[in-house]
Amino acid sequence: MEVFVCLRQTAVVKEEPKIQPDKKGVDLSGLKRHLNEWDAYALEEALLLTQRYGGDVSVISLGPKEVEDVLFHGLAAGAKKAIHIFVPEREQIDNWVIANILSREIKKYPFDLILTGAQAEDDGCAEIGATLAQLLKIPHASLVMKVIYEPDAKSIKVERELEEGYMDVLRLRLPALLTIQTGINQPRYVSSLRLRRFKKAGTILRVSFDELISEAGDVYPKKEVVRLYPSRPEFSKVEMLGGSPEAISDQLIELLISKGVL
């Protein structure tokens, strides 16, 4: 089975992310970047499926030069092909444009399955997977926690997570798209030595964003960021306990006793 995995690189933010002067984006300089948490599970599931049933995994990502790091990670983990659609960092493109561009590129290849993460850590939109499925006119299931391939029927059986522990069991005709939820597997460890080896010798197919646009026509964002601002805790509402660990413990215990919980 031929499986595509869409990978997103996300910035790891600690403390408060720096907002750009125009307030429309986050200043990513100096921030560590990594493979979006959900996508790591999607990649692993693709590798497990192809190990079990045969076939190859291709990884694809859209973004600035830096995203090639997650593509090399994909190759080092076992993917056979990596595609990079270059878009400069500052370009204001939304998930609608991303899904359109991905669909135009993926369409050029034969595939049975496309996997994406259920959502991205940075925008938490959970939007690209189902949008991509609609653009490709293939069935999809989101928040998938189990995949069973049914080669004779050219279908897959999946369990998808609902709220509070409920699951739906579905059968999808292939080709199909799944968005993968964390916990479905344990993503494999890729050693830094191996990663470095692939960064030196691995090949990435570089595709031009502009060409994909000119081949199939313009596609415009359907939403734009007007303004970003920090969402800080309201320190008027939360009482912060300070001092040494001992002093904090004293305050806390007094409090718990006064509230009758201890």
């Binding site: 609608w96 653009l135 928040l143």
Partner: peptide, 21 residues
């Protein structure tokens, strides 16, 4: 789980803007 599954797809099918969460 239902909104995340349906809204992006339905809005795409109707070519309308979608803003999640």
């Amino acid at each position: 789980s239902t909104g995340m599954d349906l809204a992006p797809r339905l809005s795409a099918a109707m070519d309308s803007p979608y803003i999640p969460d």
